[in-house]
Amino acid sequence: MPRIRWHILVFLAPAVLVYTAVMIFPLFNTLRLALYDEIGQVRVFVGLANFETLFGDPLWADAFWNALGNNFWFFCVHMLVQNPIGILLAAILSQPRLRFAALYRTAIFVPTILSFVIVGFAWKLILSPIWGIAPGMLDAVGLKSLFAPWLGQDGTALTTLALVSVWQFVGIPMMLIYAALLSIPEEILEAGEIDGITGIAAFWKIKLPLILPSIGIISILTFVGNFNAFDLIYAAQGALAGPDFATDILGTFMYRTFFGFQLQLGDPHMGSAIATAMFGIILLGVCIYLFGIQTRMRRYQL
């Protein structure tokens, strides 16, 4: 019989125990709870009935598809606005011998460290028609007619919040792309210069292909982050994700369902069903990335 090396066990045990007990076990327990329901104060196994309610009952299904659709739009805005801006800023910052680069970097990262509560309320105040900072500033450039209470209207509230979230998190793609750009060896760029590829052409033809793997990682981080987002919407619009659920995403939908709000009682089993759906969506996204995108991406050895 091989000697048991106790110290390995001692080193591993605390992390594995805490991680298993507080993260993995509840995760699977939540997936299990989605198959149960409470009937007369007793927990009863009901199979897929909760999912039938979630997708079949028009009241639930409408709310779910609304939240999922909103969540997709939230993600699209991030991909279309946050990541291009992040790449642009990183490309500019990575220019050799740019002055004050560290200062810009530090300042642009500031919103990322603020809590959603601060960000949500700060923008709510700034965009508020009562305070008048936003209309006042638009007035100064002669565009006052463009102003509307963006956060209060069905059509614009979600996009506005997505842009606020973009404002907050642009620092992360910027930093990661910046790191990727710095790791491109000088010789490659010089070789390009000799062939007459400089400036913007060098960015499109040499740098961009080399940083594609980083862009892939950022996309999947954005995806996972967006599909369990909650805090910003809750801080700015409350649990009801107003106006008229226009800003409801999966995180707020799950919170309302399992924790209850106002007059509706919380339902942990329906909450678990929604959590299971979120789990499936995130898993699907991660798998598409791992097997569909990451393996097909061309990598260049530097």
Binding site: M23, L27, L33, N228, F258, I282
Partner: peptide, 9 residues
């Protein structure tokens, strides 16, 4: 996998 998925449990 975000830990929030397991919140109910």
């Amino acid at each position: 996998i975000p830990i929030r998925i397991g919140t109910v449990a």
